[in-house]
Design a protein around this nucleic acid. Structure first.
Lengths: 325, 325
DNA sequence: TAATATATGTCAACCGTTTATCATATAAAA
DNA sequence: TTTTATATGATAAACGGTTGACATATATTA
C-alpha cells in the first residue's frame, strides 16, 4: 500500500510538505494542495492510522463495552453511539462483556492496549480499582462506576413516578415491579423506589421481584414472571424493567386468559422497537437514547481534551402511551 | 503510560529480551519471564497495539459494516461476530452504513486507513470497483459483492421452499410474499423464486410485494402490508422477509379482525428474539447466525493468511414452528 | 528598497514496537 | 575438552507517519 513517501516522490514534493497538506499545517499553495490530492487519489493512498496515532499519541477510536448486544436497548444505544461517534470523527470498537467481570476487565485492558481516546462502559460490576489506571476518559451509562470520569443516565426516578402514576390512574390497586437488572446497586433501583412511593401515597399494594440472571440468560423472563404472578395472583398492574419484560408479561397474561389492559395494565421501560410490535402495544417510559448517546460522545471528547465535564448528566424520560396501560 | 523501555529498565533487561518474552521468541529462561511479567504488572504495562501493528504491518482488528444495527437480525449477527472475533483474538470496528453507498465507501476507506485484518460487509450496493484496491480480505454475508473474497449466506432457496411448503400444507391457497429488502439482485431473491415455484406446483396463487425503503425507514412496513392486503384481500398466507415484517403483519391482521393462524397463516424469516415475543409466536425460517458468524471470522482469518477460501459458503436453514403458521 | 508573508525544502528526532545481526557468557552434551 | 544449546546484551534499522528547527526562495507590502 502506498505511503506518504510514495505520494511525496510521485508529486515531486517532500514528505514534510505532503504531511502539511494532510494536516493543514503551515503554508500550502492551492496548486500544491491540488497536486497532492491528485496523487493521493492516483495512488489510492490512505494514511496509516496506526502510524498517525502512534506519532500523535492519541487515536480516534472509542471502546464501547456493553453487557449485551442483542438486547434492543443496547442495540439502540450502540447504533446511536456509532452515529454520534461518526459525527465526531471517531470509530467504535465494540465489546460484549456479557456482564462478566473478567471479560470487562479484559476488554478494558484491550482498550488500554489500543490506546483508545476513551471508553464507554455499561458495567454490571463495580470494580473501581480496575479503572484507576485507565489513562483515558471513562464514560458510563445507566450504571454507577466510582472511578469513572462521567456518567450519563436517564431520570430513572421520574420514570418510576410516571409509570406508577399511569398504573394508579388507570385504577390498579396491586402493582408488581419486575426489575430489569439483577446486580448490586444501580440507577435503575430508583425506579422501584419511586414506584413504591407512589403506590404508598395512593394506598396501592406494591411488590417487587428480582429477575436474577434473566437478562443474560437470553432475555428469558418467563419463569420469573409466571412465579411472581402465581405468588401475587391479585396483581392488576405491572411495571416492567424493560419493554422485553413487558412483552413477555403480555404473553403470559394472554396464556392465562388475563386481558391487557382491561384486567392487567402493563408499563414497560426504554421504548424500543418491540414496544410497538406487540398486541396491544406497550405503554412505556421512553429513554432519549439518541440524546444520551450524543452526550456520551461529547462528554468523552471534552474529557479527552482535558476539559472539565459534569460528573453526571441526567436526561428526562417521557411516558409513551400505547395499548398496554 | 509505561513503555517497553520502562519495563526493560525496571527489570534490568534490554528491550530485546522483554520483546522476546512478549512474543515468545528465542530463548528465555523461566526466571526472566517471571521477572518481566512481574514488572509489567507492577508498571501496569500494556503493549501499544498501534506500535505493534505498525511494526508487524498487520492489525488484529476487523471492520464490520452493516446497513442497520438495531434490526434484530443484524444485532444478532454483530453479537455473534463479536464473540467469534474475540475467540480468534480479533477486535471489531463497527460501522453502520444505513445502506448508503457513500457511507459504505467512506467506511471502507476508514477500514483501509485502520489497516484492518479484513472487512465484513453486508452491502446494499454492488460497487465492485471500490473494493478492488482494498488490500485485505472482504467477506460478505447475505449480499453479493463481485469483488469480494468470499460470501457467507444461508440457503435462501431452501428457506423459501420450507416456508411455502408450510403454508401450502396448512391449506393456504393465496400466498403473499413480502420481501425484506428492496435493492437490486440479492440472495434473498431466491426465497421468492422458491416460494413461487412451490405455489405453482401446488396450484396456489402467488403474489409478491416490494417493501421499498421500509427496512431503512425505521423498519416500518405497516403501510406496505396494509396496501398489499387491500390489493389482495383473499390472501390467506404470508411469507414475510423477516420476523419484524411478520410481527407487523400479525398486528395488522389483528386490527382487521383476521385471526392468525386460523384465517391467515404467517411465516417469518431469521428466527430472532421477536419471533417468540408475539402472540401467536412466529413460525419462521431459522438462519444459523452463530455458525455463520464463526464461518465469517474463520474465512476472514484464513484469507488474511493467504490461504485459499471457498468463494461461497451456504448454511442450511430450518423451519421453526410456533403459532403463526 | 527593505521588511514581511508565503511556500517549500532539508534534516532529523520521535512515537513504541519488532526483528535481525552479532557478540558474549554460561551450562549441558559429546 | 570441545562442541552445542541456552540465555542475554548491544545496536540499529524498520514500520509510516508527525513535528520542529532552520534554510531558502519568491511574492507582497510598507
Amino acid at each position: 500500500m502506498a505511503t506518504l513517501k510514495d505520494v511525496a516522490r510521485e508529486s515531486g514534493l517532500t514528505v514534510g510538505t505532503v504531511s502539511r497538506v494532510l494536516n493543514n499545517r503551515g503554508y500550502i499553495s492551492e496548486k500544491t494542495r491540488q497536486k497532492v490530492y491528485e496523487v493521493m487519489e492516483e495512488l489510492n493512498y490512505q494514511p496509516n492510522e496506526m502510524a498517525r496515532s502512534l506519532s500523535k499519541r492519541k487515536s480516534n477510536t472509542i471502546g464501547v463495552i456493553v453487557p449485551h448486544i442483542v438486547h434492543p436497548y443496547f442495540a439502540k444505544m450502540i447504533s446511536n453511539l456509532e452515529l454520534a461517534a461518526y459525527e465526531h470523527k471517531y470509530k467504535i470498537l465494540l465489546f460484549n462483556s456479557k456482564g462478566k467481570e473478567e471479560k470487562e476487565e479484559e476488554y478494558i485492558e484491550m482498550c488500554r492496549s489500543s490506546r483508545v481516546a476513551g471508553v464507554v462502559l455499561c458495567s454490571g460490576n463495580i470494580v473501581t480499582e480496575k479503572f484507576k489506571n485507565l489513562d483515558c476518559p471513562l464514560i458510563t451509562f445507566e450504571r454507577f462506576i466510582d472511578g469513572g470520569t462521567a456518567g450519563i443516565l436517564c431520570d430513572n426516578y421520574q420514570g418510576g413516578v410516571l409509570a406508577a402514576q399511569r398504573l394508579v390512574d388507570g385504577g390498579c390497586r396491586h402493582i408488581l415491579h419486575i426489575g430489569g437488572v439483577n446486580e448490586v446497586r444501580m440507577p435503575a433501583d430508583d425506579r422501584k423506589t419511586a414506584c413504591e412511593k407512589v403506590c404508598r401515597e395512593n394506598g396501592v399494594e406494591f411488590w417487587d421481584v428480582d429477575p436474577g440472571q434473566c437478562f443474560y440468560n437470553d432475555m428469558n423472563y418467563y419463569q420469573v414472571i409466571r412465579e411472581a404472578l402465581k405468588e401475587h395472583p391479585n396483581t392488576d398492574g405491572i411495571f416492567a424493567g424493560s419493554d422485553v419484560i413487558a412483552a413477555q408479561a403480555i404473553q403470559i397474561c394472554h396464556e392465562n386468559g388475563i386481558s391487557v389492559p382491561e384486567q392487567m395494565k402493563i408499563v414497560g421501560f426504554d421504548d424500543v422497537n418491540i414496544a410497538s410490535l406487540t398486541i396491544p402495544g406497550i405503554t412505556t417510559i421512553r429513554q432519549p437514547v439518541k440524546e444520551m448517546a450524543e452526550a456520551i460522545i461529547k462528554t468523552l471528547e471534552s474529557a479527552s481534551k482535558g476539559k472539565m465535564v459534569p460528573a453526571q448528566t441526567v436526561f428526562p424520560v417521557t411516558l409513551v402511551v400505547r395499548g398496554s396501560a
